[in-house]
């Protein structure tokens, strides 16, 4: 196995493109090294992206927020401005694993691992996040919901690597939140999860995005759930209708972590609870 630690994104993309065998990107390694331990992955080339300066940046500007692909969960959580602007995205990322894992894991790694239960993904999708994808020849911007195509599958082409995630500019009264259900208090993979992002105008929900995790092969954006609360003050009926829309959008499986029935029911509960938190964070009151 070759180990390379390039210092530019272009170099990384070129290495990945040229490798004929199995080539893997290493950011935090909290998924890749587990796969290697379990014998599920035997890379011929590992490209460590942590030495690329552009991948280590967190930039907050007038146009939005840019988070490098190698920024760890801990660093994300330590950034007060980011936490204030996007509490849901930060809390979702900070839920991944233990403090030990937080020291290594990244949002982009969480995304590219392409697990339907990834914590940061529903929050990013709800936030309207975009990924800056760099290939050996060109760079493109892709909405996060278009990165993962199925369990373990992404739309990235050979040689492509995500350099950063951008979050849109926050307007006025807005808030986001992410909730997941796990059997324990820590260390589990989400059985079901929900991210909600909304903005208010005169106390009424003006825009909203609701995204569910672990209820389908990929995270699911639920426009009907958003519709259910837009134009409302999150009254009981709106919340119930949001919950129903969330449950209706589920296409889950029975597995070691939960049942179809359970996930469908709890998706609605979490969607409702996350919406209430996001509403409160946006300054809303009933």
């Amino acid at each position: 196995m070759r180990y390379e630690a390039p210092t530019t994104t272009k170099e990384a993309a070129t290495l990945l493109a040229k490798e004929n065998g199995e080539a893997c990107v290493l950011a935090g390694g909290t998924d890749l090294l587990v796969r290697m331990k379990m014998g599920l992955s035997e890379p011929d080339l590992i490209v460590d992206i942590k030495h690329i300066p552009a991948m280590q940046e967190i930039k907050i500007s007038a146009s939005g927020t840019k988070i490098g692909a190698a920024v760890s969960g801990t660093r994300l959580g330590d950034n007060k401005a980011l936490k204030k602007a996007w509490p849901g995205v930060v809390e979702a990322t900070n839920l991944i694993g233990s403090d030990q894992v937080q020291g290594r894991c990244t949002m982009v790694g969480n995304l590219c691992n392409a697990s339907p239960a990834a914590d940061s993904v529903p929050a990013m999708i709800a936030a309207g996040a975009k990924a800056v994808v760099v290939g050996p020849k060109k760079r493109r911007t892709v909405t996060v919901e278009n990165i993962v195509t199925g369990p373990g599958q992404t739309s990235l082409e050979k040689g492509e690597v995500i350099e950063s995630i951008t979050l849109p500019k926050r307007s006025g009264k807005s808030g986001d939140a992410y909730l997941r259900f796990i059997p324990r208090t820590e260390m589990d993979i989400a059985v079901v999860s929900a991210g909600v992002n909304l903005t208010l105008e005169k106390g009424v929900v003006k825009t909203a995005r609701v995204c569910l995790g672990a209820v389908a092969p990929t995270a699911v954006l639920v426009p009907d759930a958003a519709k259910a609360i837009i134009g409302t003050k999150l009254d009981k009926a709106a919340l119930e209708s949001l919950a129903a829309a969330c449950s209706a959008a589920c296409n889950p499986i029975d597995d070691k972590r939960g049942t179809v029935e359970y996930r469908t029911k709890v998706a609605g509960v979490l969607g409702r609870r996350a919406a209430e938190i996001a509403f409160k964070r946006a300054g809303g009151s009933k």
């Binding site: 290493l26 390694g29 090294l33 801990t74 290594r104």
Partner: peptide
């Protein structure tokens, strides 16, 4: 060996990590 138990905890440049989830070369 999969980052779930923390018995291999070390600090790497001051950051708490599971050493089973870091390559030696890193």
């Amino acid at each position: 060996g999969t980052g779930d138990c923390g018995a291999c905890s070390i600090t790497l440049d001051g950051q708490l990590v599971c050493s089973c989830l870091v390559l030696g070369v890193e």
